[in-house]
């Protein structure tokens, strides 16, 4: 199912009995798949128009009044455009606002460079008190929504809008603060998030054929990082790859490297955007262009294993 349909369905459920939830968007109700939600809950859904700064601070005001506001826009506007409002009105003021950034990184596809956020996790990760969650499929999003709604504090949800390949099944149990072990292995840790998770599962199979046992860990929550899972995997494999739909600076690679440097330094390779801006193109073209495919994960894994001490 499309991620936005899951989002709509879960918000419908929760808003029907939880009157504190307020949904605000900045002229993107249709894009977010929330048009029917607006019709269903007209008194608690607001469209501020193309005014993201206003949206962020309004949400802070609502939160200070005991409401549970969710705000929606594309990832670049949910982060770099409203950086100061997120920092001051929301984080510094200790408000409880869920910030949904849609179409992260290359998911912006034909909206191109202006809309293609490769820096959003870096921006949000640097803000004290901010938590960051990036669901990788519809099941994970569905299972997460209860915890997202109950979460208290600023939370950035970096969300793909459309249909994604399935990673999880109905038996999956979600914990916002625990990374998910997708495949167990011995030779290399592969930490991944968002749409790169599926690429890493494909990479696992290719590596297996080559006789390499990879451990795939979905780091769905980039902050606070599940340090125990990350370090214990690296203690076992003694090398790692980080795969993400983001610039190599500031995202998952940075987060894992920061933890490793202080606890268990090992060689780590990054499968990510190499400090470039975005451009128009479909998902497959952009994955190939920026080096975000399963083959890039495989190559990085094989290279980093050679560097293992």
């Amino acid at each position: 199912m499309e991620m936005r349909k899951v989002l709509y369905s879960k918000l419908c459920d929760f808003m029907s009995y939880d009157k504190s939830i307020v949904v605000i968007n900045a002229d993107l109700a249709k894009a977010a798949g929330l048009s029917d939600l607006v019709k269903k809950f007209p008194d608690r859904c607001f469209n501020v128009g193309v005014a993201e700064q206003n949206m962020a601070s309004i949400a802070a005001g609502l939160s200070s009044y005991g409401m549970n506001p969710f705000i929606f826009t594309f990832t670049p506007f949910a982060t770099r455009r409203i950086c100061d409002q997120v920092a001051v009105s929301i984080c510094y003021a200790k408000q409880n606002v869920k910030i949904f950034g849609l179409d992260p990184g290359i998911a912006a596809e034909n909206n191109g460079g202006t809309h293609m956020s490769f820096e959003d996790v870096g921006i949000m990760r640097s803000m004290p008190s901010m938590s960051i969650f990036e669901p990788c499929d519809d099941i994970q999003l569905e299972k997460s929504m209860r915890q997202v709604i109950d979460f208290r504090g600023p939370l950035y949800v970096r969300m793909f809008r459309k249909e994604t390949p399935r990673v999880f099944d109905d038996e999956y149990e979600f914990n916002l603060f625990s990374a998910d072990l997708i495949r167990s292995g011995e030779d290399v840790s592969i930490f991944c998030t968002g749409i790169l998770v599926y690429e890493c599962i494909k990479a696992y199979e290719i590596l297996k054929e080559k006789g390499i046992s990879a451990e795939i860990i979905n780091v769905h929550t980039l902050k606070p990082l599940d340090e125990n899972s990350v370090i214990s995997s690296m203690r076992k494999t003694r090398c790692a790859v980080c795969a993400e739909n983001h610039n190599r600076y500031g995202g998952l690679f940075s987060a894992v490297s920061e933890v490793a440097s202080g606890s268990f330094p090992v060689p780590i390779k990054s499968v990510s955007v190499n400090d470039e801006f975005g451009q128009v193109g479909n998902l497959d073209f952009l994955k190939n262009y920026y080096g975000l495919t399963c083959d890039h994960v495989v190559n990085s894994a094989m290279e980093v294993i050679k560097k293992r001490v």
Binding site: V22, A60, S64, M67
Partner: peptide
């Protein structure tokens, strides 16, 4: 003090959020 403010322009939007919340409640 009902709202943190200092980065100019933001407080009025926060007040708008409070005003909406008061109406809802």
């Amino acid at each position: 003090v009902d709202m943190t403010a200092g980065s100019l322009g933001q407080g009025l939007s926060c007040a708008v959020g409070m005003s909406l919340a008061s109406k809802l409640k």
